[in-house]
């Protein structure tokens, strides 16, 4: 009989792999509920005081609001730009579309620290003040490639005659977009919004260079790490963000799989 890799060995590898990924993350909620400033075992007791402290920390709440604003603006802006690009690339035979696609995804391959510094130099040279607006601009730059990728794969499989059918049935180009392309692209649009929001919400380096006097949440957390007594509060914040982003990712994944199912139907029609 042929001897493959032992099943037990593979199973153990899988468990170790998952543990390495998720156990450190699980320490966050665990210690955020621990009644001690020190992050160490044994646990000293259950408390919600770090969450209370977090909710009454005005600087933190301000940073959270900044991050939500930047994330929302970035998500809307980059998804809109991505949608326009994906629509153009799928609808028309754009000359040099491969090169265009390569250029738009270039920011993915430039280290954020290089982008951050070059944007800082640019804004300084143009005499533009640093603010949340400059962070939004920087984040949009890195998020547009994600939006294009998500939306391109969504729009690519469409039967082109769907929009033509709409034109033929009396709607102009704009209404055809709203009544046919937009609803069909909606799962892609939503997952693009979520993805770009999370990329922006999470981003530290570019925000660090471009935020000026304001702080986004990652910058705020970074600044708090200097104060050991603040650490449990940061853990509480981390745990809250973890739960919120897990929910978002699950939602996005659910939408995406639903979108894939729709696509199958469209392909049948093609």
């Amino acid at each position: 009989m042929r001897k493959g890799p032992s099943r037990v060995g593979l199973f153990a590898y899988a468990i170790l792999y998952l543990a390495f990924l998720y156990v450190p993350v699980l320490f966050l909620p665990l210690f955020s509920l621990n009644d001690s400033v020190f992050i160490a075992f044994p646990l000293s007791g259950f408390t919600t005081q770090w969450y209370e402290a977090m909710l009454s920390d005005d600087a933190m709440l301000r940073a959270l609001r900044n991050s939500l604003e930047v994330g929302t603006a970035t998500a809307l802006l980059s998804t809109l730009l991505g949608l326009l690009t994906a629509k153009a690339l799928t609808q028309f035979r754009v000359p040099g579309s491969a090169a265009l696609l390569g250029f738009t995804s270039l920011p993915l391959f430039i280290p954020d620290i290089v982008l951050g510094i070059s944007l800082l130099i640019l804004l300084d040279a143009a005499n533009l003040p640093l603010s949340l607006l400059s962070v939004i601009a920087g984040h949009t730059l890195i998020c547009v490639p994600f939006a294009i990728t998500v939306l391109l794969s969504r729009l690519e499989g469409f039967d082109k005659s769907l929009e033509e059918a709409s034109r033929d049935l009396g709607e102009n180009a704009w209404m055809s977009f709203w009544r046919v392309t937009f609803p069909l692209a909606l799962p892609g649009i939503i997952s693009s919004l979520l993805l770009t929001f999370i990329v922006s919400f999470d981003e530290f380096l570019i925000a660090y260079f471009l935020a000026g006097n304001e702080a986004t949440l990652p910058i705020y957390i970074w600044s708090q790490l200097r104060f050991p007594y603040k650490l449990p509060e940061v853990l509480a914040l981390g745990a809250a963000i973890l739960i919120a982003s897990t929910l978002l990712v699950v939602f996005a994944e659910w939408l995406r799989s639903r979108g894939l199912e729709d696509r199958k139907h469209i392909m049948v029609g093609a």
Binding site: A165, D168, P183, D262, A270
Partner: peptide, 19 residues
């Protein structure tokens, strides 16, 4: 354009709106 002509079309792929 097509939306201003008194003709309608049955497409080869039928182009039934999937949504």
């Amino acid at each position: 354009p097509a939306n201003r002509r008194p003709s309608n079309m049955v497409f080869q792929s039928y182009a039934i709106f999937p949504h």
